[in-house]
Simulated assay, not measured.
Amino acid sequence: MHVEIAEPSRLQLGEGALWDPAGERLYWIGIEDRRVLWLEQGTGTASSVQLDTMPGTLVPYRDGRVLLATERGFELLDTASGTLGPVAEVEADRPHRRMNDGKCDPYGRLLAGTMTLAEPREPGPLYRLEPDGGTLRAVPVLDGLAIPNGLAWPEPDRLWYIDTPTRRIDLYEYPEHGPVGPLVRSIDTSELPGDPDGMTLDRDGNLWVAFWGGSSVRCFAPDGALLETVELPVPQVTSVAFGGPELDRLYITTAATGLDPADPAPHGALFRCDHLATGRPAVPWAGPAV
């Protein structure tokens, strides 16, 4: 299989790859870089917006707007103007924390966890953005997480989830309302190089998982069998998303943080690998309009 550079920006912490079929854009973020980036399908042009806060994840909304999870909570970004507006505060009394990876559930509600900015790790919750009367609020639905990362729903009532230090991919029951349900089973990755980070599902229900420090993306069957490994020329692999009109391009984000700036390897670049599998469309944020 051939992995190529889709966009060469050397991001300190590239993350959050996500395909927006409505806008025909591949979005990703630079967390420490405080940037939102996108690649236009039609032209191959890359654009970005500089922020005044660290984004942890994003999901598309409508009319060129995206919902972000940031240091301050949930915020709505207009990519045309660069305007960022508040949606719901999260942990305003805990400035040493920020939001990290997240995705929308099958009902169009964004879930994202929080983590400390430095060691020692202080456990925190996974939040879900929900309506509360005429406003929106962040509701904790799973607690005790150190580095909250990949999420994927194989069915509306099941959630695959990664809390990176556990080195597991956990499958939970996921009721439509209320907290995340009991643990169903886990895929143990502790014998493999690197730590599991972001992930996505293909059409057949297989999990494609980025491995930080593992120079790879690995594909697991739902029963945990390792099916395939995509090798990257850089160690810090952070997230994955299927994109393109046919959802048959695997986009991979990476990070340069902590590495030698003089190293010529393409740390922090966005990579692409075609025709490995066909993905599932990402769920946009359902709103309400704000």
Results as ranks from 00 to 15, higher is better:
Ala256Ser: 12
Glu4Cys: 00
Val87Gln: 08
Pro86Met: 05
Arg72Phe: 01
Pro21Trp: 00
Asn149Gln: 13
Arg62Phe: 07
Glu228Asn: 04
Gly279His: 02
Pro86Leu: 08
Pro182Glu: 14
Ala286Cys: 06
Met1Ile: 13
Asp274Gln: 12
Ala262Met: 03
Gln236Lys: 14
Ala289Lys: 09
Leu226Ser: 02
Thr70Ser: 15
Gly258Thr: 12
Leu159His: 07
Ser239Ala: 15
Gln236Thr: 03
Tyr161Trp: 04
Glu15Val: 14
Asp197Cys: 08
Gly64Phe: 05
Val59Gly: 01
Asp274Arg: 14
Val240Arg: 03
Gly16Asp: 15
Ala69Tyr: 10
His2Met: 02
Ala92Lys: 08
Leu250Ile: 02
His2Trp: 01
Ala225Thr: 15
Asp132Lys: 07
His96Pro: 00
Val234Trp: 05
Tyr174Arg: 14
Val59Ala: 08
Met115Gln: 15
Glu119Gly: 04
Asp33Leu: 05
Leu192Ala: 03
Val230Trp: 06
Val3Lys: 09
Thr189Ile: 05
Ser239Pro: 09
Val36Met: 04
Gln50Ala: 13
Leu77Met: 08
Val237Pro: 01
Cys273Gly: 10
Gly268Glu: 12
Leu259Tyr: 04
Asp260His: 11
Pro154Asp: 11
Gly224Gln: 05
Asn149Asp: 13
Arg65Ile: 01
Pro182Cys: 03
Thr278Ser: 07
Ala46Cys: 14
Ala241Arg: 06
Glu4Trp: 00
Trp28Arg: 08
Cys104Asp: 11
Ala152Asn: 08
Arg249Ile: 02
Pro179Cys: 01
Asp188Arg: 07
Glu176Arg: 15
Leu183Thr: 10
Glu91Asn: 06
Ala69Asp: 07
Gln12Ser: 12
Ile29Cys: 13
Gly198Pro: 01
Pro222Ile: 02
Arg280Leu: 11
Gly279Phe: 00
Leu151Glu: 03
Arg272Cys: 15
Leu126Gly: 08
Tyr172Ala: 12
Asp132Pro: 01
